[in-house]
Design a protein around this nucleic acid. Structure first.
Lengths: 156, 156
DNA sequence: CGCAGATATTTCAAGTATGAAATTTTAATG
DNA sequence: CATTAAAATTTCATACTTGAAATATCTGCG
């Protein structure tokens, strides 16, 4: 939901303020996401989900199992299958089998994938820097740690 | 992208810190969104996009044009068409024409829609309150205003 | 060994999501 | 008044997304 609180306030609760925070959070991330998606498409003919997958694989040089990938990206496993399929078709990702366990399939970036991704990551970082230009380093650090904190409250 | 900074740091920039902030922001909103989606489905057999549309229409008693709806929700107009179609099929939303302009179609909640939505909104607010329980009112207020601020920097 | 249960992945149906093209209607201008 | 540009929606192709069901494989226990 991307609007303002709608129900009547009960006394003794901060729920309205938290709701407002959530809405702002959501709107902020949606606007930024949408801007990044647009630029990724314009400059690289790619998408955000593809970027996410490649980013995860970029740092895991040895490759990742599909399950680990989906857990890390916070998306369903069925979802990752499709995105990886398309990346494989484009020659940016390769699948392989793990010794001793034929269930697990390890995916990793190809040389072409690493090369392309390095360029995308550089642009991406500059874009984020531009889009969040209004946030100073100190402030970014603060916000960052608060966001980290309130998430770990209800997740493991 | 939902991981940590990947490229080398240039001296004299806060870009790494901003990138980290963006990643945290994204991960936070994704986790919360996913939890809310699950509960909305479990308790009401509904979805987040439907909730968003209904929330917008709930406050605009007179109804909204499709374009205004899509602009407000930050999603494409083609997208809104489909969601509204399904809400209409369920009897929660009605379309009507505006006097004098046959292009514009005004959509509004039906009585059934208002009734259902009121219950969903109440549950939704309680969920958000629960999920953000770690954030005090003061802190929520602070975070909120910072989020609002850094968005308006690059959007109109 | 044999087989119930756990794991890893894919497949599938349904619902989002975007951006571009097509439609329909209105407004503006010569 | 006719034509052209603008505006509001819908349609369409493609990609993403989830959650559940189907497959295939592995593990542990009797």
């Amino acid at each position: 939901m991307v609007s303002a609180p709608l129900t009547a306030e009960r006394p003794g609760t901060d729920s309205k303020e938290r709701l407002r925070l959530w809405i702002r959070l959501l709107r902020a991330s949606r606007s930024i996401e949408s801007e990044l998606r647009e630029r990724l498409k314009r400059d690289f003919g790619s998408t955000l989900p593809r970027f996410d997958v490649m980013a995860a694989l970029y740092r895991e040089t040895g490759g990742m199992a599909m399950t680990d990938l989906s857990r890390f990206l916070l998306v369903s496993n069925g979802n990752v299958t499709g995105i990886v399929d398309r990346l494989v078709a484009d020659g940016y990702v390769a699948r392989s089998k793990r010794e001793g366990d034929r269930r697990t399939s390890i995916v990793r970036l190809t040389a072409a994938g690493r090369e392309i991704f390095a360029r995308m990551a550089e642009a991406h970082e500059a874009w984020v820097d531009e889009l969040l230009a209004g946030v100073g380093e100190m402030e970014a650090r603060e916000l960052s740690s608060k966001l980290k904190a309130f998430r770990s409250d209800w997740e493991g």
